[in-house]
Each structure stands twice: as structure tokens, then as C-alpha cells.
Design a binder for these strands. Sequence first.
DNA 1: CCGGAACTACACTGCACGGTGTAGTGTAGG
DNA 2: CCTACACTACACCGTGCAGTGTAGTTCCGG
Lengths: 210, 210
Amino acid sequence: MASAKTLREGATPKRAAIVTAARELFFSDGFDRTSVDAVAARAGVSKRTVYDYFGDKVTLLNAVVDTVGQSMVATIRRTLDETLAEVDAAGLEDALVAFSMRVSTDMLGSPEYATLQRLAQTDSGHLAKLDRYEIDNAPEEALAERFAALTEAGLLDVTDPRLGADQFIALTFGVALNRLRSANAAEDPRVRPILVEGVRVFLRAYRSGP
Amino acid sequence: MASAKTLREGATPKRAAIVTAARELFFSDGFDRTSVDAVAARAGVSKRTVYDYFGDKVTLLNAVVDTVGQSMVATIRRTLDETLAEVDAAGLEDALVAFSMRVSTDMLGSPEYATLQRLAQTDSGHLAKLDRYEIDNAPEEALAERFAALTEAGLLDVTDPRLGADQFIALTFGVALNRLRSANAAEDPRVRPILVEGVRVFLRAYRSGP
DNA sequence: CCGGAACTACACTGCACGGTGTAGTGTAGG
DNA sequence: CCTACACTACACCGTGCAGTGTAGTTCCGG
């Protein structure tokens, strides 16, 4: 006897369209300033359908956060494998730069990550208690694992991998995001130097000493 | 013939109370979810008075951002002078830790800085074009100056002081904020170790080598 | 051909909130 | 005592928006 009125389930194209439209609007205008009517219009769908699928606006937000989070994690995992799987000491710096560049650009806009945080924090903060721990920390955890492996392999000297991952992220994406508030990292030529320097600082601190 | 209806000026206690109440509510609930009625109630003031002073809600937000920004800059400048004015090589690490700790705790709650950014960005982003450049960058610039001085003095080796400042901030406050999303740094015992490690990374990368 | 599910179009409710107008109260200064 | 001003209390308007109810259309499987 769930009190729900049987929301529509499954991965239909309409559902995806709604989530996509909602994501775009939430990201650009914020949760509060986005009306469900606008989402429906953008998705090319009747407002009623939105409610048939999601029940209410907050649930829709959760769906967006969920979707973005998952795809983000997937992107990071894949990029991690593709850029940092087999490196030697000589290629480490380039590999780390490549990794951060790819992540920066692959995330559709760019501050997608930070924006997601904002969305799930500021907006649904008091509203929904989504178990965001996994989504929030998965990227850091994945990177931490990799740092641990690199330490094992003698390329790095990271005693606290999780902290190291947080610091790496802060030094690269954190600085870039802070500097170029609105910009989308995909094209901005100012991004790369920031990432390069961030990686250098990280390596000066954590590269395995002789 | 200004179109304004002569807002109330000057630093009256009521005005301060309104700004304070608005700050607290904007910070905890967000701009959109905070009603002017709530602000007035919290300030112990009639709603009409709020409008007599500020004209509209966005102007009130600007006043809040302004006030917080100024006091933040003041705090940072002062702390900078008190902790990093006269240091030698031996005391550098401790001084940097002291600086970041003091800044973390002195900022009333803690993520005040990030929250301010959010407020002025997400919320008034499309609404008001406040010339936030000074407020936003003053802390970084101030820290950059200090790093330049320390480089001059031979304690550090920071070729791009502004970038170094951004990195320092990311490594310390950035990491702390990211980890302890909601917490207020003032008391949380997890903050200090993060700051200490951030400073160490920074110094390993930037301490003047022999 | 029938029934049901997915959808749309649209009207409609209820409410919260930004903003205003105004009458009235307290208070300080001349 | 009178005026001016800061302020309150309160009623009020307009609007935007979440959410619902419903009638009608299309389409598909049996």
C-alpha cells in the first residue's frame, strides 16, 4: 500500500527528454527559477506527463542529480582507465594533465560538477535527503584508488590517498573553477595552463623521492 | 529626476539588523526561499521598513553581499598582517597554518566565502550585475602580495603569486569545504589536519629550494 | 473492433510571495 | 502644541507557479 499514485517507470525516450530538459534548465537558471511548465515545453512534452513520470518537482530534481552523478562517475572512471592505466615515471605528469583536461572537457559544460553540488545542496538541501554520499565521493574515491596504486608502483608517495585525491582535485578543477567562474572549460584556453601548474605542484609535493 | 523613491540612507541600527537577518536567512535557506516577510520578522522590523530602506529584494541581496564581502576582506587583511608579517624559514609552516585556521574560524560560520559566491552567482546571476570583481578577488590578491614578498625575502619560490595564492586557497579552504560540506569550520576538529596537510603540500612545492 | 495505456490540451485551484498604499503611533525638535 | 519623521500594522493587488482533474486523441495488442 504505497501512497504513491503509481508513477510511470522505465527508460522511455520521453522520460529521458524530460530529465535532459530539466538538467539544462536547472543548471542554467537554478531549481527555483525553473518552472515545470518550462521543463515540459523544452522537453516537448505536456506538463501533465512530467507529473505522470515524476510526481513532483523535487523528485524530478533527484532524478537529474542521480543521472548526472552516474554519468559523471562513469566518465571519470573511464578516463582514469584510459589515461592512467599504464604510466611510467617519465609520462606521469603528462598523463595527469591529460586526465584532468579530459575530465574538464568531457563534462558537458564544465562546472557541471560544482553545479551539481550546488543544485543538490543549496536547492534540495532542506527538501530532500538524497543519499548522495556515493555520487559525491565516487570521483574522489576512484582517483584515490589510482593514487594508491601509483604509490604501490613507486611512482608517487601518497600516504593518504583520499586526501591526496581531494588535493589534486582542488589544485586542478578547484582552481580552474574558481578563476573562470562562468566559463565552460571545454574551449577556454586559460584552462590548460592552470591544470598544468596544478599537476606540477601536486607532483612536486607527491612524486616519489629518491 | 532619479526614478528612485528616495531610499533611506545611513548606518542606522535598523538597517544593520535587516542586513544581518537577511544574511543569515539567505545563507541558510537561499535567496529564493527567503521571503522578505521572514527577513523583516527576524530583524524585528516591519516589512514596510525593509522596503523603505532597500527598495527591493535584489538590492537587499546586494547590500548583504557587499557587507559580507567587505568584512571578509578586512578579516583576511588583518589576519594576514598578524600571522605573516614577520616570519622566518623555521616558522613559515606554522604561520601559514595559523593564518588558514584563523581565517577559517573567523568567518562566522565558515563556508561563508563559498556561500557568498553561490549567492552572488546562482541567485543574482541573471538578476544583478554587481561589480563583484574587487570583493571576489581581494582575498586572493592580498595573499598573492604576501607570497610575492615572501619570495622576495627568499622564503618561498613562487613565480606566479596570484596562481600560488589560488592554489594555496584551494589546497586549504577548498579541500576543507569540499570535505565538510555543511559543517562549520569553527569547531570541527577535522578541519585542522586538512589545513595542515594542505600547507605542507604547498610548501613542498613552493618552499625556496637550496 | 474493442479496450486500455500513453499523452496532450486546457482549465482550474490554492497559495506564497513581491511589492504598495495608508492610517495610525511614538518621539524628538522647534 | 505642532510638525516632521521613522516606523508599524495591516490590508491589498497581481502574478507566477506547483499540482490536479478531465476530456479527448492516438496508437497498439488481442
